[in-house]
């Protein structure tokens, strides 16, 4: 069972819908007992880094997420949900993140338009099960102004935007994150979600 964490940031329906399209019902919840039964966790998020962390605290979700991460449950953050997996964010004000991944999240310094909005090509940095159904240079949909600077060994895929390499996919053991929106990325996005689904059933 995949649980989509409901912490009142943005629209969770699109994630739910996307999993439905690949034939998988998800449970949207912030109930600790439900989360404890999850075999896979999706951490979505739209809005700002500090608000997201505040909401996670408000619903007492930090400890349970940490517990599930320690238990080895696959966790995938999407967009802002990926960003808060890192140690610190600098959106609005410096804010402590979940710290599941090493690195910071700060405003993109790029000689191109911000937000980075639209379809961009994924370039692979290293092999990862999430990439098994797709090819390098497949397009996925991005909308963001802030970007994560992960450690080299936790960067899985990136894209080129202006003069920058923008972090697109990160992973460390059972913790994964997409800066892009797989749930909005057409067939390629569905293939990535399918790969996540397969990590859970096996």
């Amino acid at each position: 069972m995949i649980v989509v964490i409901d912490y009142n940031v943005g629209n969770l329906k699109s994630v739910e819908n996307a999993f439905k399209r690949i034939g998988l019902e998800t449970v949207v919840s912030r109930d600790h007992e439900v989360i404890r039964q999850a075999t896979g966790i999706i951490l979505p998020g739209v809005g700002s880094f500090p608000t997201a962390m505040k909401k996670l605290k408000q619903y007492q979700l930090i400890d349970i997420l940490t517990e599930r991460k320690e238990a080895g449950i696959p966790i995938m953050g999407i967009c802002l949900g990926m960003q808060i997996l890192f140690e610190r964010g600098f959106e609005v004000e410096e804010t402590k993140g979940l710290g599941f991944l090493k690195g910071d999240v700060s405003l993109m310094e790029v000689d191109a338009k911000i937000p980075h909005m639209g379809w961009n090509e994924l370039l692979f940095k290293q092999e990862h099960p999430l990439l098994k159904n797709i090819k390098e240079k497949d397009y996925v949909y991005f909308v963001h102004s802030f970007m994560a600077s992960p450690s080299e060994d936790e960067l899985v895929a990136y894209c080129e935007y202006g003069n920058k390499k923008v972090t697109a996919l990160v992973a460390k053991d059972n913790v994964m994150g997409c800066q892009f929106h797989p749930e909005k990325s057409g067939e390629i996005g569905q293939k990535i979600l399918l790969a996540f689904k397969e990590m859970i059933t096996c």
Partner: peptide
Amino acid sequence: GASELSIP
């Protein structure tokens, strides 16, 4: 639309 489309 949102449930059936895979794009924004």
